[in-house]
Write a protein that binds this DNA or RNA. Structure first.
Length: 573
RNA sequence: GCCCUCGUAGCUCAGGGGAUAGAGCAACGGUUUCCUAAACCGUGGGUCGCAGGUUCGAAUCCUGCCGAGGGCACCA
């Protein structure tokens, strides 16, 4: 346990409880006036009808802090300012240094977590609109997995529905080999648009397409084979994009809409059996409590359309039921844009009413805002089209390569290409993860690729500089060396390092990953002050060993922290 | 019309009911015989959209208003 804040909190909670005669939150926070402050005496004083400073003094007298705290002072109206002992910090850093997990504990209660993210449509490009769900969802998967949860990635691709009638007919028109050729070069949009144009312009083609939809739903062998060809080609393309992007989704994670086809009848029957199903305008609907529409009437989830086909609501409900009942998941994450908030809340409510989402299981909408262009409107190409995701990635890498070439001409071409890839992809992921996800953000190449400020590249640079010290000195840090914290910058760095466990736990619990990026920036800032004030290689003996350990620990935390966000760290740049 | 989200320094954004609201960028001034100057130090810059309320204490919680965006039946 290297998490100072929770250690202090636990110790003080005992003392506060003794004073209060009941559990009481000591309200421990980082402080500008000391290392930490505990503010719990103020609200407690009101409850007890005593003077706040008395309560603080009482709690402090009962607290067992001698091994951790050097000085504890009561300040202002009743704040307790705590300054920690240097040897306590050094001891905890020693523990952290010797721990592969850097002091971050695994979850007390490991859960089965399903993370629904990315979800592109078959026969369509991944575009800028898929950026956030893919990046955020992957970060969630990495963090929760690292904390010991059983993470099930679910890529809910759009692989079913009426568009496949026209897509299959278009495939037949082209001929299979020709069509596969076209799809394999990655021109998915062109294929889709050509089908669309024919569907709109040619009534005969449209009629064939509708017939093909019927055949598909009826399970016709030939039709299913052709459908599978389309899905397989698209999946290959998606996997190539994920690979380029450093996303952990693989072929094992495709659970498209079609995966739930066989579950739809049972789901509708179950809803009917529960008395939740009602007919409205010829459609079979569920009306979850608490939602009214434009007309003031209850809003439906349409599980079966007037034409007899299933609505997406049916698939969503089937997925929830499958995840909680078959997979035994207790934590369902939906990494989906904010506009779908209401729809998801309705589905969750419906699942609760059906008994498919009962405690401890819960579903969370991990919503996010839009990516905007420099003009403040939805990101689009100059021609107004959607921007292809792979083109965005390629441009980031090209731009990063140009900057790396300019800043460090000594790197050989191969290293430079590798660094550019890490920096370019990392820059895109970093901006996406570094602000509150619910807000929109504007895509700005110059800012995101700037190598100073709150960017991924700055963290990568800090990491590379640390490695440079080891390389220059020809030294390997001794991870069991004694830690000395004589300089203020060393002590400040130690405080930051010891905050890692709390921030990872917190980011996972709240699914607010910008807290982790913010922490890493602070850490890099503390390291830089250390770097400026505490020469490493010019020091000797125990000081050298201690400083090498601090460098090593900082590098490990940065690398681990960025890895949890899906961002790589180059050894030099 | 109803519902949801957002509004903090010139710009981009942090801010878990606690003390004097913080970073980065930009601006201005400075730092290099020294481990990557892709860096660092300093300076200026704020009616926390507005108005009430709750509280010992509000950027933070509640209500109303203003502004921006989004959602509200057979696409997902």
């Amino acid at each position: 346990m290297t998490d100072l804040e929770s250690v202090l909190n636990d110790r003080l909670a005992v003392a506060f409880a003794a004073v209060a005669g009941a559990p009481a939150d000591p309200v421990v926070r980082r402080s500008q006036h000391a290392d930490f402050q505990a503010d719990g005496a103020l609200p407690l004083a009101r409850r007890l009808g005593r003077a706040p400073r008395d309560v603080a003094a009482d709690a402090l007298a009962r607290a067992d802090l001698a091994d951790l705290v050097a000085t504890a002072q009561i300040s202002g109206p009743g704040f307790i300012n705590l300054t920690l002992r240097d040897d306590a910090l050094a001891g905890l850093l020693g523990v952290m240094s010797g721990d592969e997990r850097l002091g971050v504990p695994t979850a007390a209660v490991p859960e089965t977590v399903v993370i629904d993210y990315s979800a592109p449509n078959v026969a369509k490009e991944l575009h800028a609109g898929h950026l956030r769900t893919t990046v955020i969802g992957d970060a969630a998967a990495r963090i929760l997995e690292w904390l010991g949860h059983d993470v099930r990635r679910a890529n809910h691709i759009g692989d079913w529905g009426t568009p496949f009638g026209m897509l299959i007919e278009h495939l037949l028109d082209l001929g299979e080999t020709e069509a596969m050729q076209e799809l394999s070069v990655g021109d998915l949009n062109g294929f889709y648009q050509a089908a669309r144009v024919k569907f709109d312009a040619d009534p005969v083609f449209a009629e064939r397409s509708r017939g093909r939809v019927v055949a598909l739903q009826a399970g016709d062998d030939t039709t299913l084979r052709l459908w599978r060809l389309l899905v397989d080609e698209s999946e290959k393309y998606f996997l190539a994009a994920y690979d380029k992007m450093g996303i952990t989704l693989t072929a094992d994670h495709f659970y498209g809409e079609s995966y739930y086809n066989d579950m739809l009848d049972p789901v509708v029957d179950a809803l009917d059996g529960l008395g939740l199903l009602r007919e409205s305008d010829g459609a079979q609907c569920v009306f979850p409590r608490g939602f009214t529409g434009r007309d003031g009437e209850p809003m439906p989830i349409i599980v079966r359309k007037r034409d007899g086909g299933y609505g997406y609501g049916a698939t969503d409900l089937a997925a929830i039921r499958h995840r909680t009942q078959d997979l035994k998941a207790t934590w369902l994450l939906y990494v989906v844009g904010s506009p779908q908030q209401q729809h998801l809340e309705m589905v969750f409510q419906c699942a609760r009413e059906a008994g498919w989402l009962a405690a401890p299981a819960r579903a969370v909408h991990v919503g996010f805002g839009q990516v905007l262009g420099a003009d403040g409107k939805k990101l689009a190409s100059r021609a107004g089209d959607t921007v292809k995701l792979v083109e965005l990635l390629d441009e980031a890498v090209i731009r990063a390569a140009a900057i790396v070439r300019e800043k460090n001409p000594d790197l050989d071409a191969e290293t430079r290409a590798e660094v550019a890839r890490m920096v370019g992809i990392g820059a895109i992921k970093y901006v996406d993860l570094s602000s509150d996800r619910i807000k929109d953000y504007a895509f700005d190449w110059d800012r995101m690729l700037s190598f100073s400020g709150d960017t991924g590249a700055y963290l990568q640079y800090t990491y590379a500089r640390i490695n440079s010290i080891f390389r220059r000195g020809g030294v390997v840090p001794d991870r069991s060396a004694a830690v000395l914290l004589d300089q203020p910058a060393e002590r400040a760095l130690a405080m930051e390092l010891l905050g890692f466990a709390a921030v990872v736990t917190d980011a996972a619990a709240t699914l607010q990953f910008h807290r982790l990026t913010g922490y890493l920036q602070h850490l890099a800032g503390a390291y830089t002050a250390f770097y400026e004030n505490c020469p490493v290689l010019k020091s000797e003996g125990a000081v050298l060993a201690s400083r090498l350990l601090l460098c090593d620990l900082t590098a490990r935390v940065i690398a681990q922290g960025l890895d949890l966000l899906g961002i790589e760290t180059p050894e030099r740049m």
